[in-house]
Design a protein around this nucleic acid. Structure first.
Length: 508
RNA sequence: GAGGCUGUAGCUCAGUCGGUAGAGCAACGGACUUUUAAUCCGUAGGUCCAGGGUUCGAGUCCCUGCAGCCUCACCA
């Protein structure tokens, strides 16, 4: 940016900003507030477009020299941003955009009067204006508001992106999401679709009698998942605190408290790497139902997803990149061991063969619990290949410290994960409610697992709650951002999070 | 954390073999009352991401750093 004129704050401004600030002064000289104010009773542009049918066309008057058909249309009022502008002598055509759509506005010097015209000459791309006028069609058939009165609502003193290409640099689109929303095709729709999905999930759960609660986000023990937490500190209590990594343990305390159907849909924080599928903060749904089990949760998961698809107005077959995902229920269900054998050709209980394969892949198998090795192989060989939607059932119990064991099969945990396009979208258990077993599992770290890598973190307060009696229950977790990715055909989580974490902008 | 790619005008992008920094849009001045990525005439606009090195000479080659994207790792 080249310094040409200092702004009021002393900052150097470029030629674009200088030109816009000059127009701002001219607006003030005309008695127009460049920052606008309340503007009532405008209609959404997509609603205005729907009124096209109200336009009445009659034959041209005989003495009309240009033989134009006579049109009478409804009077409309719109507000939005000027995104394209064509100044043509004593006519100005501009495209006005609000969050529902775009419409052309025509301003004629002789039609709007001198004051309006002088204001209109000061319009820049990006300015926000209000328009009163008649909805008609131009000679070329374009639906247009023929302006009668203009209202200046806000000056934009920085230039918008290039009008045809918009912003393409993903860094700029994420840093300046406001510009992305205005100028990138599909950006606004995508984030509004995310809102619809989240609304739909709440509606589905509310309708089935689940109550939404708000648990603490500051935890003294960051439990309920295997992840490193963000550490923080409370000054007055002089106490270390952690941002929550899961919602689980407080929701289960509420099961103890008699809240029989409960959920939380909110943000969790994990101090881990960033990737197209991982953001340090992300949105998680967890649902618990007293007297249910993981099969109850499987059915619920299907209903939540199918309702969300319907809420976005999409069919049950969705394209995702080059692939098509078929959400027609019921989703396939296969056991962990079944899939393990299918994809590795090794019997799930042949530990020696599993270790050989693990070492072939390059895993260190020494001093590791057999199920940890097996699961590493599973994640490597099976998970990425699961196009889904597929429920993977019945995990090795030893890697599931918060899950109830299958009746008569203590080596199996009643757990499922839902895989779609290689992504883990949901994870559910029949919840472990035996306080003694839970305490023992918290105490016993599996060999080869660092404490921070384990879901088993001792939480005495939680154990005490279990001793008071937690009903047998089903519990479900859903990664909302990933679900939104799948339902909006986005391959990066950063495209479904409004403001993903970025490093600070460099000075250079 | 590792590897690959990218970084040039407000935006989108060219820039050949190392030899004076380019275009389109946007901006500024002018023409134009049915345009629509308006058109036409003219003008202005640069810390080539930052720092170092090689060279007579670096946007271009080399090194270091910063940021983003992709792949991998961790993880959901």
């Amino acid at each position: 940016m080249t310094g040409q004129q200092p702004s009021q704050t002393g900052r150097d401004v470029g030629m674009h900003e200088a030109a816009r600030r000059e127009k701002l002064s001219k607006l003030e000289a005309l008695g127009v507030d460049p920052w606008g104010g309340r503007f009532d009773d405008h209609q959404a542009i997509d609603k205005i477009r729907q009124r096209e049918a109200e336009i009445v066309t009659s034959p041209p008057l005989a003495d009309d020299p240009r033989q134009q058909p006579q049109q009478t249309g409804p009077r409309v009022r719109a507000a939005g941003r000027v995104v394209l502008q064509r100044k043509k002598g004593k006519l100005i055509f501009l495209d006005l955009q609000d969050w529902s759509g775009r419409i052309q506005v025509m301003i004629g010097q002789n039609q709007v009067g001198q004051q309006n015209w002088e204001v209109a000459l000061l319009f820049d791309l990006g300015d926000m204006i209000g328009v009163d006028g008649e909805l008609k069609r131009t000679r070329t058939g374009e639906l247009t508001i023929f302006a009668e009165q203009l209202h200046f609502l806000t000056k934009s003193i920085l230039p918008p992106p290039e009008k045809h290409h918009g912003l393409t640099d993903p860094e700029l689109r994420q840093r300046m999401r406001y510009l992305d929303l205005v100028h990138s095709d599909g950006a606004m729709e995508r984030f509004l679709k995310r809102t619809k999905i989240v609304q739909s999930i709440r509606r589905t759960l509310d309708a089935e009698g689940y109550v939404e609660i708000e648990g603490p986000t500051l935890h003294t023990i960051a439990g309920g998942a295997a992840a490193r937490p963000f550490a923080t500190h409370h000054n007055a209590l002089n106490m270390p605190l952690f941002m929550r990594i899961a919602l689980e343990l407080h929701l289960k305390r509420l099961l103890v408290g008699g809240v029989e159907r409960v959920y939380e849909l909110g943000r969790v924080y994990r101090n881990e790497g960033i990737s197209p599928r991982h953001n340090p903060e992300f949105t998680m749904l967890e649902v618990y139902q007293a007297y249910g089990n993981y099969e109850t949760m499987m059915d619920l998961t299907e209903r939540i997803i199918l309702d969300a698809i319907a809420a976005t107005g999409q069919p049950q077959q969705l394209s995702w990149g080059d692939a098509t995902i078929d959400f027609t229920p019921p989703f396939a269900r296969k056991t962990y061991d079944e899939l393990f054998a299918e994809h590795t050709g090794i019997e799930p209980d042949d530990h020696a063969a599993i270790c050989r394969l693990a070492e072939q892949i390059g895993f260190d198998t020494s001093a590791k619990h057999p199920d940890v090795v097996k699961n590493e192989v599973f994640e490597e060989k099976v998970e990425d290949a699961l196009s889904g939607p597929l429920f993977v059932l019945d995990y090795p119990a030893s890697i599931c410290p918060l899950t109830k064991r299958a009746r008569g099969r203590p080596e199996i945990a009643e757990r499922f994960e839902l895989f779609i396009q290689g992504m883990e979208v949901a994870n559910a258990y029949t919840e472990l409610n035996d306080p003694d077993l839970q305490e023992q599992l918290f105490r016993t770290q599996l060999e080869g697992q660092k404490e921070e890598d384990s879901m088993a973190k001792m939480d005495d307060d939680f154990i005490r709650a279990l001793r008071h009696g937690m009903p047998p229950a089903g519990g479900l977790g859903v990664g909302i951002d990933r679900l939104v990715m799948l339902l909006t055909n986005m391959s990066s989580i950063r495209e479904v999070i409004l403001f993903p974490l970025l490093r600070p902008e460099s000075e250079h």
